[in-house]
Design a protein around this nucleic acid. Structure first.
Length: 268
DNA sequence: CGAGCATGGTGAC
DNA sequence: TCACCCTGCTCGA
């Protein structure tokens, strides 16, 4: 369930719970045993997120690079027995972090982290990110905006939910060629993502509906989807648009399900 | 209880 | 473009 907000939240939790502490590192499942043994008993310095990548730094410039992929998860909680397949466990006397089903988990170094960071576009959750890099990049791209938003080299941290929701909120047709959108529109996309993703990080869920369209305001039932948030179009195929009532549509774009309102999203 | 699917990305072809 | 990674949930039989 990971878009960028999940990784940034996780990085903060790891730093708060394990930063400056001696950490027991293990790999109950066995796929990371060699690396875990080298780190076991080391002090965790800090954890950082860059887009959807997570970097957990230990003393001696040793860094665990984690990518959760589609199905991976990392959960923090009180000390408890290992249940199921745990690729990596970080533990103190009172706190445990279990990594399950990640796409990637490897021991690397600062050079590798820097190289990875260099391949990523600006991250709306990075306070130091420069949206000018995004604007310069998209000026030459003819692919649809709905495709470009998922390209981590152009913009990092955005996933399939934020893609659909930010395009709806700004009334943009997802198939509009990226370069056809005026710079001001791309700037508006960036600004909206900064707000939405910061809120997503803070709440631990994705909420994108404006106050006037909330379940309370519209006397409708709250949404109970996997990510738990209130959204306009994501996974609402054939349901009425919360703004105009037109059935929400779905199609494949960039290998992922795209959801949009054909009536509200005609502009660019 | 099995099939299908999912907020993601890689690598083979 | 597709198989695959590998987990957890939902849905239909």
């Amino acid at each position: 369930m990971p878009e960028g907000h999940v990784l940034h939240r996780l990085a903060d939790e790891l730093t708060a719970g394990f930063g400056g502490r001696v950490v027991a590192v293990s790999s109950p499942q066995g796929r990371f045993t060699t690396e875990a043994m080298m780190l076991d008993g080391s002090t965790l310095v800090a954890a950082r997120a860059r887009g959807k990548h997570l970097f957990i730094e230990f003393t001696g410039e040793r860094i665990i690079h984690v990518h959760l992929g589609l199905i991976g998860s990392m959960t923090l909680g009180p000390a408890r027995p290992v249940v199921g397949q745990v690729r990596l466990r970080l533990a103190t006397d009172t706190l445990v972090a279990d990594l399950r089903g990640p796409q990637g988990c490897r021991l690397t170094d600062p050079q590798h982290e820097a190289a990875m960071a260099a391949r990523l576009g600006p991250d709306p959750l990075d306070p130091a990110a420069d949206p000018a890099l995004l604007l310069a990049r998209v000026r030459t791209l003819t692919k649809p905006v709905g495709t470009v938003l998922l390209d981590q080299a152009v913009l990092s941290g955005v996933g399939n939910v934020y893609r659909a929701e930010v395009l709806f909120r700004l009334g943009i047709d997802p198939l509009t060629p990226a370069a056809d959108l005026p710079p001001a529109t791309w700037r508006a996309i960036w600004d909206d993502l900064v707000v939405l993703m910061a809120e997503g990080k803070r709440q631990g869920r994705i909420d994108t509906v404006r106050p006037e369209h909330t379940p309370e305001a519209m006397s409708r039932s709250p949404r109970t989807d996997d990510h738990g948030g209130e959204v306009y179009v994501y996974r609402r195929t054939d349901e009425p648009c919360l703004v105009c009532g037109t059935p929400i549509r779905r199609r494949d774009l960039a290998g992922r399900n795209l959801f949009w309102c054909p009536a509200c999203q005609q502009g660019h």
